[in-house]
Amino acid sequence: MTGRPKLQSALLGLTPFVALVLIWQVAPSVFSYPAYMLPTVSEVGRRFIELTLNGELARSVGASLLRLAAAFVVGNLIAIPLGVLLAMNARVSRIVMPVAVFLQAVAGIAWAPLAVLWFGLGNTAVTFLVVNSVFFSSFYNAISGVRSIPPVLWRAVRSLGASPWQVVRELVLPGAMVQLLLGLRTSLALGWRALVAAELIIGTNGIGFLMMDATKWYGTDTIICGIVVIGVLWLAVDRFVFAAIERNTVRRWGMVNDN
């Protein structure tokens, strides 16, 4: 935005983090609170190194990301084609839409008790919740994306005698693309929340479980490590996964227009 060199503005942006860390480090000598409530930076750092070296952090993060990736792919692979197909018929879409709206409103963590009843505590129940969250969000967005295409375009395509496949490729996909992308992004954000939440409450491994387990023995240092890792992971997922998805879909969309 400004003409300021990148390095300089990056350094400027780092300043508050450094200041925060310094304040946090000297806080125990200024304020008095029980040490378990807020361990110092060096203690958290030591714990972080410990968790990294004994492999616990990598195992937890790996388990969480694997589940998220699987749930994101599976949920969207079912939800988007199904939503698009149903919404291509105006009457079916009018009938399905209210149900989709309602299910999207209760999707995710509210299913936790049912997931535990059906699958027991652990991996399957957590994955079910994330898939559930991703599915209903994308399903809703796919339907509303197709419905948002103006009726005049349907009529135009129809009067030009398009084949069903041409209708999908020339009208439905490009027309609903913005909403489909929004659906992908929203489903990832909701899936990520559902994942962390589910691991906290019914998980047996993963980053959320690592943190919740630590509350039992006042492992505040572990919890803070977890919070920072969760922030960094989301930034990475958002930046790399989403930049890639958007680039590719927009590029593909461009190719559709070229034909």
Partner: peptide
């Protein structure tokens, strides 16, 4: 100065704070 910090807190999902708040 503060935007990177704001963006970072934005990236931390609220549920991640819950174990700390419980303690």
């Amino acid at each position: 100065l503060l935007m990177p910090l704001v963006n970072f807190t934005y990236a931390i999902v609220e549920v991640a704070w819950i174990p700390l708040l419980i303690l």
